[in-house]
């Protein structure tokens, strides 16, 4: 845990997931163990270039994982790092998914877009602790079939007991096996879970979150069982810089994972 001054994290392995998207496996250079919750994020900095917020993807073989899409200056530099190069790390910050609270319930994951790290991290956790949860339902929407990252993982999840994986492609004309055409929200009609004992975790564009709500209501999912991972501009990650406010909430501090009833009034309000 480090807040104002970064600690060093050394790149051990880069896994290219798709063009422009890579998972960095980092050795955190710290005496104290790096503990975190899924859904939390770190502020990662590239020497001389800048600092950006990135979700924690997971921890494997003593290494911290971050999956990064190259979209601009800092992120592009990060996925181009050489082995043994270092970046700065401040974190972990914010609130993650309250996964322990969800024990004994059906878990429903809804994501759209490419490699939504906070949700994939939570699925990995649920799968690793399979007996703590009941049914697992994974709904993922992408534009094109090829955009789906970690295809083998989805295949493995599909064959796991009591797990439903539903995929949708919005910009394809031909339907593939296991896929539906259209938006992720359309998959909700096929999802089978117990709305009275579930936790729904959503990550992706806010417009998708909004679109999912009527479907969830139709399934009689209660607002208090829904959690959202939000994204805003972060400069500090510590609730000080003011950039990430959505209404009264500082997304970096009060989120990025929010209990839906808390952000409901602000969701989809243009300009917030």
């Amino acid at each position: 845990m480090t807040d104002y001054v970064p600690i060093r994290a050394r790149l051990m392995v880069t896994t290219e997931e798709s063009p422009g998207l890579a998972t960095l496996h980092l050795k955190v250079q710290s005496e104290t163990p790096f503990t975190f919750q899924f859904g939390q994020f770190n502020m990662l900095s590239m020497f001389g270039i800048g600092e950006i917020p990135i979700s924690i993807m997971g921890w494997q073989d003593g290494l911290l994982m971050h999956t990064i899409r190259a979209v601009g200056r800092v992120s592009t530099a990060m996925i181009g790092m050489q082995k043994d190069q270092e970046l700065g790390l401040r974190g972990p910050f914010g609130k993650g998914w309250p996964l322990e609270k969800f024990e004994g319930r059906d878990l429903v994951f809804i994501t759209a877009g490419l490699g939504c790290a906070p949700v994939v991290a939570a699925i990995n956790y649920a799968v690793a602790h399979r007996n703590r949860y009941r049914r697992i339902v994974i709904l993922q929407g992408v534009k094109h079939h090829n955009d789906l990252l970690w295809q083998p993982k989805y295949d493995a999840w599909r064959t796991m007991g009591d797990c439903q994986v539903l995929l949708a492609a919005s910009e394809e004309s031909k339907r593939k096996h296991h896929w539906k055409l259209g938006l992720v929200t359309a998959l909700l009609d096929d999802a089978e879970f117990d709305p009275r004992h579930c936790a729904v975790m959503i990550c992706g564009p806010e417009i998708m979150m909004l679109a999912a709500m009527p479907f969830l209501q139709k399934h009689q999912v209660r607002d208090e069982d829904i959690y959202l991972s939000m994204e805003r501009n972060f400069q500090c990650g510590m609730g000080a810089c003011g950039h990430c406010q959505i209404g009264p909430h500082f997304v970096c501090r009060d989120g990025p994972v929010f209990h839906y009833p808390d952000v409901k009034p602000w969701l989809g309000v243009k300009g917030f």
Partner: peptide, 24 residues
């Protein structure tokens, strides 16, 4: 008002990275 932004600046002489916070 408390908003701020941060910039990464490379100090020309020492070559150090200075992370600088400015009013925003």
């Amino acid at each position: 008002c408390f908003c701020s932004k941060q910039e990464a600046e490379v100090e020309p002489v020492s070559g150090e990275h200075h992370q600088v916070r400015y009013w925003d």
